[in-house]
Amino acid sequence: MKTSFKFFTLCATLIGLTACNAKTKKQPTLYAENQVMEKVTHTEPNKQYIKVALLLDTSNSMDGLIDQAKAQLWDIVNELSYAKCGNGKPNLQIALYEYGNDKLNAREGYIKQVLAFSDDLDDISKELFSLTTNGGQEYCGQVIQTSLNQLDWEKNKDDLKLIFIAGNEPFNQGHVKYTDASANAKEKDVTINTIFCGDYEQGISTKWKTGAQLTSGDYMAINQNNKTVHIASPYDDEILILNKKLNKTYVVYGNQGKRKMAMQAEQDKNAAGYSTANAVSRTVSKSSHLYKNKSWDLVDAEEQDEVVISELKEASLPEELKGKTATEIKTYIEDKRIERKDIQDQIQELNTKRKVFISKAKTTTDNGLENAMTNAIKEQAKKKNYSWK
C-alpha cells in the first residue's frame, strides 16, 4: 500500500497579546560553603505552546517523502522560531506517530507513538531519521483518535494545537470513523490538517479534503517524490564555523549528558548528509529559542531553574568542574552562557543576510512540503494573534 507521508508540519501557536508578554522571576538563592550566592533574574518562558502531532504514513511508497521531511525539518523549525505574539515567543512541542506499516501491531491498527510531545529537537530529528517503510493498512481515523487519546493536549485556550496527517490511501479506511475523530478533535480545540501525496482531485475524492474541513484545517496535495532544493549562500561557511564554536559552549551533566551531546553531533551529521545548506539551517535552529537542552546542558538547565548548582553531586559534573565550589561552577556556567549568546547573535545576524540572498535566488524553486506547511501554519496562527517578524 502506497503511502505518502507528510513531513511534519511544524506549527504555530500563541496567545492573546497580553498573555504573550514574557515575565521575569528570581532564581532561587544558591548556597555553597556557607556563602550566599547572588540572585540572578531570568526571563520566564511563555506558558503558551505550539503543539504539533505529526502522523506519518510509513508504508512502502513513502521513502521520497521521508527524505523530503528530513531535508526540510530545520527550515520549518526556523520559520516557527520567528513567530511572535505581542512581545512574546511561543514554546514548541512536537509529537510523532507512524501508521500503515506491517511491522506495527495489527491489534493496535498498525499505529505506533514514536515520540510523545517533546521540545527536544535533537530527539525529534533522531526519531525522524529512524523511520523505515513497509506495506500495511492505513487507518487515518484511528491514528487521529489515538493521538487525541494519548497526547497531553492540555486546556490552554491560547495554545495552537495542530495535527498534520500525510498519506495517499482513502481517508475513510478502518473501523474508527474519521468524522468521529474530527468531532473529538474539535472538542479539544485541535485543528486537523491533511496532506495527500498525489493528485489534488484524487485527494478530494478519497475524503482528504473533507477530513481537514471538519475542523477548519487545510487540505494540501503535494508530490512526495520532488527533491528538496537547497540553495547555497556566501554566508554558509562562516555559519558552520560558528556551529563548531557553539557546540563547545555546552556543559554536560548527569547520567545522560555525554550520550545527548553525542546525539547532538549525530544530528549535525544527519543534516549535513543532505547538503551544506541544510546543515546551515540546523545551525540556525540551534541559535533560536526553540533549541532547548535543559536535561543535559548545565547552561540551559540553570537558566530554566532545572537544577540548583549547590545541590549537584560531584559525580554528575563534567571533569572540568569536579572539585570546584558552587561559586566557581556558577561563574563558569555564566561565562559559557555569555559566550553562547554572542555566537547565537552572530549566527542570527548572518542568517538575516542569508535569508535575503535565498529569497532572491528562490524565484524558480518550490519546496512543496515546506511551503505547504508554513503557509497553512501562518494562516491558522492568525486565530491566536500571531505575527511573523
Rank of each mutant, 00 (worst) to 15 (best):
A22G: 06
I239R: 06
G211P: 02
K2S: 15
A279F: 05
S81E: 02
I15N: 13
V40S: 05
Q173R: 15
Y250L: 12
V280R: 10
K353C: 00
Q213V: 08
N149P: 01
V284Y: 11
A381Q: 07
V190Y: 04
R282M: 14
K209P: 00
K294N: 10
T132A: 09
T41F: 03
A22K: 10
L121T: 03
Q93Y: 09
K188T: 05
K313R: 11
P318S: 07
K186C: 00
G167Q: 00
L80I: 12
N134W: 09
E98V: 14
L121P: 03
L10A: 10
G136W: 03
L214E: 11
P45V: 09
L317K: 03
N168W: 01
N101W: 08
L350N: 09
D75F: 08
T24H: 09
K209Q: 12
V229E: 11
D119I: 04
P234N: 06
S281K: 14
K26D: 14
I333E: 05
S316W: 08
E266T: 11
N226K: 13
G174Q: 06
I163V: 12
H42P: 01
E127I: 08
N367S: 00
S216V: 05
V114A: 05
P45S: 08
N225H: 11
N101G: 07
A116F: 04
S387R: 11
D268K: 10
S130W: 08
L350K: 11
L14T: 12
V284D: 05
Y82S: 14
S182M: 13
K330H: 12
G174N: 07
I94R: 01
L151N: 01
T9K: 07
K39S: 12
A279N: 09
S316F: 07
Q380S: 10
V284L: 05
P28G: 02
L54A: 15
N21Y: 09
T58W: 06
E370Y: 13
L17A: 08
T146D: 12
A95W: 09
F357P: 02
D236S: 07
Q213N: 13
S4A: 14
A326Q: 11
T206Q: 03
N371Y: 03
W388R: 12
K248D: 14
